[in-house]
Every structure is written in C-alpha cells, then in structure tokens.
Simulated assay, not measured.
Amino acid sequence: MTAEIHQFPASRTAHNRRVASEQAKRNELAEYLRTVAKWIQADDVKCDPQALLLVLSGKAGDEVVWKGYADNPDVSLRDAGHAAYAQVNTTFKRRGGNFHDRRKL
C-alpha cells in the first residue's frame, strides 16, 4: 500500500510575509549604500575614491557592477578584484566586513 503526500497550497498570507521580509532586506541594503554614499560625499573615507566595484549577491547568483575604471588610468579593476579577494580570504574575522573600523568612539 502506498500513500501520496499532497502539499498544502501556500497561503496568500505566508506569501505576503515572505515578500515583505525580502523587501525589508533590500531596504536595509539600500540604506547601507546610502550611508556609504554619505561617507564618500563627506570625504570620510580612508582613500580618495575614483571608482567602484560592487557585488550584489542573492540566491540565484551574484551580479558584479563597476563604475569609473574604463576612463581612469589611475585605478585598476584588477587591483580592486584582488583587494576584494583578500578581504574575503582573511584568516581572521573582520567586524561587519569593513576594512576600516567605522565605529564612533
């Protein structure tokens, strides 16, 4: 004798909660990017940024975007990639993933 298992249909409420949770995560990331933009505008960063390399990560994969490398011989996309690789492969834990400590003392 065999039994078939039937999945209950996903309720609209559960779907709406999942969508709201995902939107909250996206909003948190967008707010962090706004904070980084404020640091750049206020010249509150350790280097003089002339280009940007950004990796957007999700369940389906990663998307890499960059700006400012094509027309600027002073910065190298390859060097930025090496810096990101070194950041990911450190043997010790960095608080928040930042290279520079941004806590206000």
Rank of each mutant, 00 (worst) to 15 (best):
K104Q: 10
P73W: 08
V88L: 13
K38P: 00
K38H: 14
I40V: 14
R78H: 13
K46S: 14
A60S: 12
V64F: 02
D74N: 05
L105Q: 12
F8D: 08
V88R: 08
D71W: 12
L29K: 15
N98R: 12
R94Q: 09
D101L: 05
Q41C: 10
A84P: 00
V65I: 08
Y85I: 10
E4M: 09
A3Q: 13
P49M: 06
A30H: 06
L54I: 08
N98V: 06
L53K: 00
D43V: 00
V19E: 05
V75S: 00
S76H: 07
L53M: 06
K59S: 08
R26A: 14
N72W: 03
Q50P: 05
V45D: 15
E63K: 09
D79V: 04
D48Y: 02
A70Y: 03
D43N: 10
V45K: 09
K25P: 02
Q50L: 10
S57A: 07
T13K: 09
L54D: 08
Y85N: 15
A30Q: 09
D74I: 09
A51H: 01
M1R: 10
K38G: 04
E28P: 13
K25D: 14
V45N: 15
Y32R: 14
A60N: 04
D44V: 03
R102Y: 03
A37T: 11
F8I: 07
N98M: 06
H15F: 14
Q23H: 07
M1I: 06
K59L: 07
L54E: 07
L53W: 02
K59R: 10
H6L: 11
L77N: 01
A51G: 05
V55I: 15
F92D: 08
S76A: 12
N16G: 06
Q41Y: 04
S76I: 11
A14D: 13
L105Y: 15
L53G: 00
G61N: 10
G61A: 14
V55Y: 02
L105S: 07
R34K: 12
R95A: 00
A51R: 03
K38L: 13
T2W: 15
K104N: 01
I5G: 01
Y69E: 00
Y69K: 06
